[in-house]
Design a protein around this nucleic acid. Structure first.
Length: 572
RNA sequence: GCCCCCGUAGCUCAGGGGAUAGAGCAGCGGUUUCCUAAACCGUUGGUCGCAGGUUCGAUUCCUGCCGGGGGCGCCA
């Protein structure tokens, strides 16, 4: 349900009736349960505006509220807050609707459906994915699910780094240092080895560097031989990328790498020049931002063509925006990319606006993954943990932990559960934190399964699932009427009512951690409820009600975890 | 030098104009003849980096400073 809107309407009606005012009621959750369920703060600013004493104005509003359906108590407090307590019957009635809503578990859909392209993951060809790709992939996949579920039309796009300078080096490097057999056997390992040698040599040997540039130019002008070599690099790399994505359970709607836009680049350059957006400077074609208060201070131009004539990342990104506008008719483009690229995106978006591209563009940035020592997990010289090995370790650790605890997992399901728990732990650890800050990757915390962590959530889910299994009840049929009496029932119910608002807020602001926090809160309140209230052992309408409460908790937990990309398991 | 982000409990982090600032971990003390104890309950712990300003009210907004991180012409 839409709790915020419902309460807002209630508050608005009261303020209208008591004060004939359209001022916003400013309803918040009570800061302390002693103050009731919610508080209406809107009287304070209104009093200021009307030059009246706040408490004086608050009295008639509180009276009006008290007379309204569902309001148990409304009283003036402090400088002029109105503390609001809703009746348990009202809470139950509101939540009944969510219990019945088997299709969406109480989450409404947006009024205005828009088409959004989400650009995420974006690994490089000829390179193993490493921890640096983890956040973009996990965050992006969650945002796709979240925005899609609230009703948007979402296109998840893997903008592969499959074009650019590195291929000149790789082609020459393969010719010089390459081992064909090794390439067949393990493409990425061989390509990484060759790349490292080639880039080192290019730094010292200018003829070698020139040769690389020449091969790159040939590739970009469509030379069949180089093109075929390139295609082989791409295809072999894709195989290993697919393995990682399969393990993560991440899929894409499009795989439009940088190469997909190559044919557009000349046109982009023309448009930049013809519209007077870019001009030459020191041999390169650049966009300057004299008119932008922030970007003009940075002084670095946005380079769209190097002095040797080659296009770059920037050029491709502009082409990509045009493509999304013309082919996808997208109204929004999100980039789930490391926060360190903030300047690039500011310049890109400013350039797009200069070109008249009317699209909502947003850089959904995120911080780095650090080790427990507070330093980046990835080292400068490229010795970084590969994503594949990290995910393997997560599964291994989870399996060990499950065995150690002697959990309720049949041996033939162990690997499946270990995978759901291990991968889930990694994903959850990443998503639970505000994306803008760096976060410490800590196996012990992740795998200790305590507190706000993936396994705790999965465990909470499994416990509820076991109630239904034991009672031989289908959660989807558990739609008895709610009657809330015990304090733990009321607390849980109030939290369950917020689910829709939370999912929408998280989706709109691109903050999956809001869902994590909320699910954690639901799981904890459920545990408290479960501790205090027998479910299957209770009888009649109490039993019906509690089963309905369990059902909605189960479904919201499952829904929320799915939105985050975590699997649930029926027993663990 | 310029620009961006971050300073909240011992540690890892939420919160973001409103009442006494919240979780987890760690610490301390409890709970199992009872539907999953990977659980639950209680408790210790904070000048919200510092200084001004705006406001009836600032941890939250603004400015400055200090501390940490990141970025800054032909990489992505």
């Amino acid at each position: 349900m839409r709790l915020e809107r419902t309460l807002n309407e209630l508050g608005q009606a009261a303020m209208q009736k008591a004060l004939q005012s359209d001022a916003p009621p400013v309803i918040r959750r009570a800061s302390d349960p002693k103050h009731g369920d919610f508080q209406l703060n809107g009287v304070l600013p209104l009093a200021k505006q009307m030059k009246k004493a706040p408490r004086e104005l608050a009295v008639p509003v509180a009276e009006a509220l008290s007379a309204m359906d569902g309001v148990e108590k409304a009283e003036v407090a402090g400088p002029g807050f109105i503390n609001l307590t809703m009746s348990k019957e009202w809470l139950a009635r509101q939540l009944d609707g969510d219990v019945q809503d088997v299709a969406r578990d109480g989450v409404h859909t947006v009024a205005e459906r828009t088409r959004i392209v989400i650009d995420f993951s974006g690994p490089n060809i000829a390179k193993q994915m490493h921890v640096g790709h983890l956040r973009s992939t996990i965050l992006g996949a969650a945002l796709v699910e979240m925005l899609r579920f609230v009703g948007h039309e979402v296109i998840g796009d893997n903008h592969l780094g499959d074009w650019g300078t590195q291929f000149g080096l790789l082609i020459v490097g393969m010719r010089t240092f390459g081992d064909e057999a090794a390439l067949e056997a393990n493409a990425i390992t061989e390509l990484e080895r060759v790349y490292k040698l080639a880039s080192a040599k290019a730094k010292e040997d200018t003829t070698f560097a020139d040769a690389a540039r020449a091969e790159l130019a040939k590739l970009q002008s469509g030379d069949p031989e180089n093109r075929a070599t390139w295609a082989r690099f791409v295809a072999t790399t894709r195989k290993s990328l697919d393995e990682v994505y399969a393990k993560l359970g991440v899929t894409f709607d499009e795989w439009l790498g940088e190469s997909a836009y190559d044919s557009m680049l000349a046109g982009v350059i023309d448009e930049l020049v013809n519209k007077g957006v870019a001009r030459e400077d020191q041999g390169a074609l650049c966009v300057f931002f004299e008119d932008d208060p922030e970007l003009s201070k940075v002084e670095t131009p946005f380079i769209v063509r190097k002095k040797d004539g080659a296009a770059l990342y920037a050029t491709t990104d502009i082409a990509t925006l045009m493509y999304r506008r013309d082919k996808f008719h997208a109204s929004e483009s999100l980039y789930v990319v490391d926060a360190r690229q903030a300047l690039h995106f500011k310049q890109l978006f400013a350039t797009a606006r200069k070109l008249g591209i009317e699209m909502k563009m947003e850089h959904v940035g995120f911080g780095s993954i650090l080790g427990t020592d507070g330093k980046p997990l990835k080292t400068r010289d490229g010795v970084s943990v590969t994503l594949a090995s990290l995910l393997d370790e997560a599964e291994t650790r989870a399996a060990a932990r499950i065995r150690e605890e002697g959990l309720d997992v049949p041996e033939d399901e162990l690997l499946k559960v270990a995978s759901a728990v291990g991968i889930g732990a990694v994903k959850y650890a990443d998503l639970r934190q505000n994306r803008v800050s760096d976060y410490q990757f800590d196996w012990d915390k992740m795998i200790s399964f305590k507190g706000n962590a993936g396994p705790y959530m999965q465990y909470a889910y499994a416990r509820i699932a076991s109630i239904f299994r034991k009672g031989e009840i289908d959660p989807l049929d558990a739609n008895g009427k709610l009657s809330l009496t015990e304090p733990t029932e009321v607390s849980l119910a109030k939290e369950l009512l917020r689910f829709g608002d939370v999912v929408h807020h998280a989706a709109e602001t691109h903050q999956p951690h809001l869902i994590c926090d909320h699910l954690y809160s639901i799981a904890r309140l459920f545990s408290a409820f479960y501790e205090a209230c027998p479910v299957l052992k209770s009888t009649d309408s109490v039993r019906e009600s509690r089963i309905a409460l369990c059902s909605l908790t189960l479904r919201q937990l499952r829904r929320g975890l799915h939105l985050l990309g975590l699997q649930v398991v029926e027993r663990m």
